[in-house]
Design a protein around this nucleic acid. Structure first.
Lengths: 202, 202
DNA sequence: TCATATAACTGACCAAAAGTCAATGACTTA
DNA sequence: TAAGTCATTGACTTTTGGTCAGTTATATGA
């Protein structure tokens, strides 16, 4: 990595940091591209060296916290699926809480935007989550934790829709309830139910 | 209702009809206010007699189909809660499917928009759904279907987050799976689980 | 070392479209 | 029938996302 590349990476980092702070504080519609570049100490045009559209920075802003969870989860090979998932739900909602309502709102709005970055692997948050969760379930099938006839795709969809649903619901309620307490009770009720009929009993 | 009021109502209706068609076909970002007013046969300024912002028409566009379900549900007093809910889920996703991905996407984006109409009773779709579902659960408690210690608020949140999650997930997947089949299987797995411990056995 | 190439950066500028508002005239009311 | 109301109009304003030709700093290679 040469000097030029390092500087470029630093500029990108500054934009994301500035963007995160402003987004968290004021919300997406209340800030404009120039607010971000001013705070980052660069010119407006520079923003467009790194992001195609104003909206595109949001996926990068939230990539850090949410990306971490996925990595964590993949490492936990000693846990059963019934233990892993509540952990994932909990950590996911921990991120939701720490990112705050403005970031989560805009993130969800972005992913629902038909024009949002479709080309990068990481940009497709949904596909990324989907593949990762599916992998975990497939793994549980192949190591004998779940029965062979487990409808992996269906269960993956159900789990993701519940994760996203919780976040959406929390945002829509204007953050009126405690995401973490709530998630715990949610998992108690739902996770067992999802897998009950597919768990192998030896 | 005098002539003037009738005409105004008709103008509003024309805007909503034109808006629905364009939104369904092209998506929200691909159309502008003038497209809608031209199709409705009125001037651009007229749009703003009926809607504060471009976005506000979307809630009105989707009010009709989704409002109908709520009405249906409230009438079905002879069904148990375990029967009512799958019906609601199914009808909800039927609306999702018939409205199409563009409408559902934008509806969700709108409800997540912190600037979207906060003043009208009907505008607050989330609160509306919430109150309605809560009422149904409360009713089930008071008529002895569910135990007295049922955590009505929690369950209401869970149900709504699942509804919204399904819709969001379907939109994010670009409508890649069949919403109705999926909902049925979803309900089979989840609805019983939610109520299992709260159903009264006589 | 120097000349050429490259890539990040700049900020004035452009274009699109959301939203405004004074003027209009059809309808209502007393 | 005259005064008042209100939906309607469309030219105009404003905002801001996004562009791009020019500049500058760094890399490359002869």
């Amino acid at each position: 990595m040469n000097k030029r590349q390092t500087a470029a990476l630093e500029t990108r980092r500054k934009l994301i940091t500035a963007g995160l702070e402003l987004l968290k504080e004021k919300g997406f519609d209340a800030i404009n591209v120039e607010d971000i570049t001013k705070k980052a100490g660069v010119a407006k045009g520079t923003f467009y060296t790194y992001f195609k559209r104003k909206e595109d920075i949001v996926l990068d802003i939230s990539r850090v916290p949410f990306g971490e969870i996925a990595e964590e989860l993949e490492k936990m090979n000693d846990l059963t699926i019934i233990e892993k998932l509540p952990h994932y739900f909990y950590r996911f909602m921990e991120c939701v809480e720490s990112c705050g309502i403005n970031v989560c709102r805009q993130w969800t709005r972005d992913v629902l935007d038909p024009n949002s970055v479709p080309d990068t692997k990481d940009g497709q948050k949904w596909k990324y989550d989907f593949e990762m969760l599916k992998g975990i379930l497939e793994n549980a099938v192949s190591n004998g934790e779940l029965k062979e006839d487990t409808p992996v795709e269906l269960l993956t969809h159900i789990i993701i829709s519940e994760l996203y649903g919780m976040m959406t619901c929390w945002c829509m309620s204007d953050g009126k309830f405690e995401p973490l307490d709530w998630t715990q009770r949610f998992c108690e009720i739902q996770i067992d139910a999802i897998f009950k009929q597919y768990i192998k009993v030896n």
